[in-house]
Design a protein around this nucleic acid. Structure first.
Lengths: 210, 210
DNA sequence: CCGCATCCCCAAAGATACTG
DNA sequence: CAGTATCTTTGGGGATGCGG
C-alpha cells in the first residue's frame, strides 16, 4: 500500500484501488458488512488468507479509515474490527461487483463460501416487489444466525443475530444448502423451513438473480 | 490469476476480483472505456505499469472475456484491445469506485492523470439536470480530442474523436488544466473556451462532485 | 517504430510456527 | 485468542532486447 506500491494517479478510481485494491482487502471489508468481527472470526471466514496478511490488511484499512479497531466494553474486552461510516459506503461497490461477477460467462459455483457471503447475496440481489409485503425471517446456518426483515416490499434489515421476538418463518441448514436455496429458489433436502412458507416464497422470489 | 492465486470462493464478488482484481487490471479496463486502444496507447496512459505487466494483464483479460484483441482492417492492421460487451458492463463498478474514492477523507489530488481519466470524470459524476438542455462540446486535451453530447439533460455520448460537424463549444488546454476546470468549475488561465459559453457552464454545473 | 519476451531484483503474499 | 516472527514463493517494477 505504501509509496511505490501506489498507482500514483489523481483518478478517484485509482485512489480507491490504492486503498482497497490490495489482495484480500475487499473480502475483509465484505466480512464486516453485516457487523463487527473479531480477528479469529475473520480468519475463520477467510481461511486462505493467513494471519500475517490478515493483520497487515486490517492495519492498513484502519490507517486509511475504512475500519476501526475497537475494544468491546469489559468484561468481554476482546478487540473487534468494525467498518467506519465511509467504509460502509463501499456498499455500491459490492453491489456492482456482485452483479457483474454473477453475469460472468465462466460461472463459478465451486469453492467455499462464508456464512456472511451466503446472506449478503440477499442484500445484493434483493428487488423491490409490488405489491408490497412484509415479513421477518430468521436464518440459521449451522451456528450463524441472521435476521432478515422486509417492510413494504423493501429490505429493511439484514443483520447477524436472532430476531427479537418471534419470526414469521425460520430457515435452517448448512451454509451451502441455504446458498442453494437462495440461488435456485428450491430447498434441498437438508434445509428445514418452519413457519410461514408464503413469506419464505416471497422472500426467495425477491432475490431472483440475472 | 491462475490456480492458487485465486480466492477459491463461490462468492460473486470474489469471482469478480479473481478476474479484475489483479494489479493494473481495472486501470487497463478504465483506459478502454472510451474505445479501443493499441498497446502503445495503453503504455502511454499507464506509464508506471511496465510492458510485461501490461502484456500479462491484456492476455488474462482476453482469456476471461473482458476484452478482445482485434486487428483493424488493412492497411492500418495494427492490433487494438477492445472491451467486450461484458467488459463494458463494468461501468457501474467504476461509477461506484469513483464516487467512493472521491469521498475519501484523504483526498488525493496529486499524481498524474491520463486524458481518458479526465474525461471519464464527466461520465462518472454527470447528473441529470432539470430543466433539460442539449449541447455538443468538443474537448481538446493536447493531442487527444473528445466529444461530449448532452441531449435533454442526459449524457448521450462521451467518446474519443472529433464532433461530426460543428460543436456548440470547444474547450482546449492541457490535461491537468481541463481536469481543474471540470473539478472546480472555473477555468484556469491555460484553458481556452470558444463558442457557446452557456453550454459549457451548464455542462460544468451538471458535473458537480460530492 | 510497435508489440511484446526476457532478465534481474525486490517487495508482497503464502505457509507455518510460535508467543504475550 | 490475537496476533507476531520467520521463511519461502511469487508476482510486479524496471531495463533491455528482439522480431515483424
Amino acid at each position: 500500500m505504501a509509496g511505490r506500491r501506489e498507482y500514483g494517479e489523481a483518478c478517484p478510481v485509482a485512489h480507491s484501488l490504492d486503498i482497497v485494491g490490495d489482495r484480500w482487502a475487499l473480502l475483509v471489508v465484505r466480512e464486516l458488512r453485516l457487523g463487527p468481527k473479531r480477528f479469529s472470526d475473520l480468519q475463520a471466514s477467510l481461511p486462505r488468507a493467513g494471519p500475517n496478511v490478515l493483520a497487515a490488511r486490517l492495519r492498513e484499512l484502519a490507517e486509511t479509515g475504512v475500519l476501526v479497531r475497537r475494544r468491546l466494553p469489559p468484561p468481554a474486552a476482546t478487540p473487534v474490527y468494525q467498518l467506519t461510516e465511509w467504509g460502509a459506503e463501499l456498499e455500491p461497490v459490492f453491489e456492482a461487483l456482485a452483479r457483474w461477477g454473477m453475469r460472468s460467462p465462466v460461472v463459478k459455483r465451486e469453492g467455499r463460501l462464508s456464512a456472511d457471503s451466503v446472506m449478503l447475496a440477499i442484500r445484493s440481489f434483493f428487488r423491490q416487489a409490488d405489491p408490497p409485503w412484509s415479513a421477518t425471517v430468521e436464518f440459521r446456518l449451522d451456528a450463524d444466525v441472521y435476521r432478515v426483515r422486509v417492510v413494504d416490499g423493501g429490505l429493511a434489515e439484514l443483520a447477524r443475530g436472532e430476531v427479537a421476538g418471534q419470526p414469521d418463518a425460520r430457515i435452517e441448514g448448512d451454509r451451502m444448502a441455504v446458498h442453494e436455496l437462495i440461488e435456485t429458489g428450491t430447498a434441498p433436502g437438508n434445509v428445514t423451513i418452519t413457519g410461514d412458507r408464503d413469506a419464505v416464497e416471497r422472500l426467495l422470489a425477491a432475490v431472483r438473480m440475472p
